[in-house]
Simulated assay, not measured.
Amino acid sequence: MNKVISALEPKPEMSEPHPRVANRLLGALGSRDYAILEPHLELVALPRGKVLFEPGDDVHTTYFPCRKTMVSLLIVTRDGREVEAATIGREGAVGGIVSDGHKPAFGRAVVQVPGSAFAISTSHLEAAKLGSTRFGDLFSRYADALLAQMMQGVACNALHSVEERCARWLLATHDRAGDHIIQLTQESLAEMLGVQRTTVSAVTSSLATRGLLKTLRGRVQILDRKGLERVACECYEAVEGHFARVLPEVDI
């Protein structure tokens, strides 16, 4: 049976569905492969700002975000600045995806949108990969999709405007959150984009003036999805299109 984290942590939603519904990557597993993981999955609460691992940490746990939960993989500079390398939600997993044995983290993993996740030790995940060719193939393809997101992010940060990048990030988050209202502060968005908060404030104000979104306290409401898609750079469609081709059985 799925276990529940200690009462010292904020409780996950009591209506949390079966893990194969809550997380799309788990849902793509065949019944036989999923049965190998099920006894080891633990339902945990992930509050906003929780650090799952730091650069250099040995990664012992893999997290499968559920529903609206989203985690950012960040690159941290010597002076403490952060820039997002990838966003992971209910379509994927965080930590120990392809590594075997020693798994030092290169970046920092931080919860941006709070919620619940299913956690499993990387040792149990590795055992499942070794025991099933199909299981290993699914996670290898997911690793490919995650790498593509990171590579496209490098190009995006170098070539596109803050407004285009902001629109791309909001679209990707909207996909994963499954709701028009995204639990996100402007400060967090600025950190993800690697810019000043005042810059993000100016960009979101411009988007709001055009009727594309509405900024609320600690939240962003998407009003015109199609309009936001027109503002976003080509990177959004490139990443989502590659994901659909590599992992057609996983619906973001």
Rank of each mutant, 00 (worst) to 15 (best):
F139T: 03
D57W: 01
G56A: 06
G101H: 08
R108I: 02
A238L: 11
K214W: 15
D179P: 00
Q196A: 13
S140M: 14
T215S: 15
H124D: 04
M150T: 02
T204P: 08
V111K: 07
A117H: 01
Q183H: 12
F243W: 09
R20Y: 06
G96C: 13
D224L: 13
E249M: 14
L74K: 03
V4C: 13
E126K: 01
L41S: 05
G218Y: 06
G27R: 09
D224A: 13
S205T: 11
G107E: 08
E249R: 05
F64I: 06
L213H: 12
A208M: 10
V4A: 05
P19R: 07
R219N: 13
Q196D: 09
M1T: 07
V250F: 01
A172L: 14
L159K: 15
G136L: 00
D100V: 11
A86H: 15
D58P: 03
Q152I: 13
Q221M: 04
L212K: 00
L73V: 05
L228T: 12
V162P: 00
C156F: 08
E163L: 03
K68L: 07
P12R: 06
R230W: 15
S123Y: 10
E38N: 10
E187F: 03
L138Q: 01
E91A: 07
K11L: 04
A28R: 05
H242F: 13
T185C: 08
L26V: 07
L130F: 15
R67L: 09
T198Y: 14
A7P: 08
S206G: 06
T61N: 12
L159Y: 07
P55Y: 11
V203P: 04
V44K: 08
L29G: 01
V195E: 10
A208S: 15
S15W: 07
L184T: 10
E84C: 09
E237V: 06
A119P: 02
P47S: 10
E13C: 10
E234I: 04
V220K: 14
G107N: 05
T215W: 05
S188G: 14
I88C: 03
V111Q: 14
P10C: 08
I97A: 12
G27W: 03
E9R: 14
L43C: 13
G115Y: 01
H174P: 05
V21N: 06
